[in-house]
Design a protein around this nucleic acid. Structure first.
Lengths: 239, 239
DNA sequence: GCTTATTTCTGACTATAGTCAGTTTTAATT
DNA sequence: AATTAAAACTGACTATAGTCAGAAATAAGC
C-alpha cells in the first residue's frame, strides 16, 4: 500500500489487509524506524511548523542519521504526506460516519467539508504546506499515495449524493463520482482562497454553501422553477 | 499595479494607466534592470526548466549581482509570477476575444480552457511550478498579483455565462461571478489531475466537457426533463 | 563643484535539503 | 563458527536559495 522505501522491500506477499506477521529482525527494525521517523516528524511539524523544522532535527529526534532519513522519505515534502495521509483519512471517515443522513444533500456535504475545515484550522501553516504538496507532488513515488487518498475522499463525498439519488432527489442519470469530483473542486478552490488570505473563514463557509447550492440546482433556465430569490454576495477581495 | 520592489518606490503619483514618464536616472535604471531580470528568468526557465535554473545564473545573465536579484524578487518563486503573470493574462484576453460567441455556453467555456491547456502543454514542468505557486504563494507580497490575475480570469470566464444569461439560457437569479468561480474550480482540479499524471490529456478534455455539462444542468431531479442518456465513463486511475 | 544623505548594488557568507562512498548489521551459505 | 553477500545505516560533503554589512551610485544641499 504505502511502499515507502521502494527499492529493497521484498515482503513475501504484500500486506493485503492486516500487516503480515513480524518476519525477520530487519523488517521489524525497519517498521520501527519508520514509525519513529513519522512520529518525530509529526511532533516537530506540529510544534514548529513545516519550514521551521529541519531534516537534521527530525533525524536527531528519531535517533537516526540524516542519510537514513532520506532512505525512508525521498524528500522533506514526502514526510508531510507520510505523516498526514492517515490523519486526513481518519477525518474523512469520521465525517462520513457522523454525517446527518436525513438532512438535505447540501447540509450533508457541508458537514463533511466542515470536518476538513476544522482540521485545517488547527494549523494553517501546515495546511498550506500539505495542500501545496498534494496539489503538485514533487516526488512521483507519492502519486499512488495521493491518488488513493483522493479516491477515498471522493468516495466519502459521493455517499450522500448517492443517498440523495436513491431518494429520488438527484437525477438518476448522474454519474455520482463525477458529481463528487465537481463538488470537491468547488470546496478545494474555496479552501485555497481561504488559506491564501483572499477570504475570511466566515466568507469561505457562506460562499461554499452558495456554491454548492448552485451546483445542485444548476445554471440552466428551467421555465418551471424561476422563483428563487437572487443569490447573495459575490466573493469580496481585500485590498 | 505590480509594486515589485516594495520598499523604495516613491514614483510621484503612481501610474494610473500609461506608465508615467521616465523621471530620473534611478527610476529608469530600475525599470531597465527589472526588465532584464524578468527577460533573463523567462529565457532560462524556458530553456532549462524552473528547478534546473539557479538564481546565480539568472543574475549572471541579467548582468547583476545575486543580492540585487533578490532586491527585485523576494524569492525564486516570485520570479515565476513576475515572468508568467503577463503571459497568462495575454492568453486569457486572446481566448476571450476569439471566443465563438454564438456557440453553446459549454463550447464557449471549453474554448477558453482549451487556450489555457494549449499554453500549459508547451511546458509541463513550468506549468507545475506555476500552478503550485499560484495555489499557495510563498510570498504574501504576491497576493495582490495573484488576486488580480484570478480576478481577470474570472471576469473572462463570466463573460460567456453573462451572454448566455442575456439570451435567457441561464437563470436570471444566478450570480454570474460565482458561477464562473465554480466552473473554474472544476477546470482547475482537472488540470491538477492532468499535471500530476492522474489522467491523460484526452481524458482531461473529455472529463472537463462532462463536468461542465453537469454544472450547467445541475444535479437536481427536475421531473420535467429526465430524458438524457446516462453520462459516460468515470475518471480512470492508473495503477 | 564639493559635501552629505539616500538609495541601490554587491558578492562573500549562512543555512539547509539532499547525496554518496564507506561502514556496520543482518542474513545466507558452507 | 567462519565466510560471504546483501541490505541498511551513517555523517562529512555538495549544491543552492537567500542574507547582510559594506561599497558604489545617485540625488540634494550648500
Amino acid at each position: 500500500m504505502s511502499e515507502t522505501t521502494g527499492q529493497k522491500l521484498r515482503n513475501g506477499a504484500a500486506n493485503p489487509a492486516s500487516p503480515a506477521l513480524p518476519a525477520g529482525r530487519r523488517e521489524r527494525n525497519k517498521r520501527e524506524k519508520l514509525q519513529r521517523i513519522v512520529a518525530s516528524a509529526r511532533k516537530l511539524f506540529q510544534k514548529q511548523g513545516f519550514t521551521a523544522t529541519t531534516t537534521q532535527e527530525i533525524a536527531q529526534h528519531a535517533e537516526i542519521g540524516v542519510g537514513t532519513l532520506f532512505l525512508y522519505a525521498k524528500s522533506k515534502e514526502d514526510l508531510l504526506i507520510l505523516v498526514f495521509r492517515d490523519e486526513i483519512l481518519e477525518i474523512v471517515d469520521r465525517a462520513h460516519e457522523s454525517c446527518p443522513k436525513s438532512a438535505s444533500l447540501q447540509d450533508q456535504l457541508l458537514h463533511i467539508f466542515d470536518a476538513f475545515l476544522t482540521y485545517h484550522q488547527k494549523d494553517l501553516g501546515l495546511a498550506c504546506a500539505l495542500i501545496k504538496e498534494i496539489t503538485i507532488f514533487s516526488n512521483p513515488d507519492r502519486r499512488e499515495d495521493v491518488a488513493s487518498m483522493m479516491d477515498k475522499i471522493f468516495t466519502r463525498i459521493a455517499a450522500p449524493i448517492e443517498r440523495a439519488q436513491a431518494r429520488g432527489l438527484i437525477r438518476s442519470d448522474i454519474d455520482v463520482r463525477r458529481a463528487a469530483t465537481n463538488v470537491f473542486a468547488v470546496y478545494y478552490v474555496g479552501l485555497v482562497g481561504w488559506l491564501g488570505g483572499m477570504v475570511s473563514l466566515a466568507e469561505f463557509r457562506t460562499d461554499l454553501a452558495t456554491a454548492l447550492k448552485m451546483q445542485i440546482d444548476g445554471l440552466q433556465a428551467t421555465p418551471g422553477q424561476m422563483s428563487a430569490k437572487p443569490t447573495t454576495r459575490t466573493t469580496t477581495r481585500r485590498s
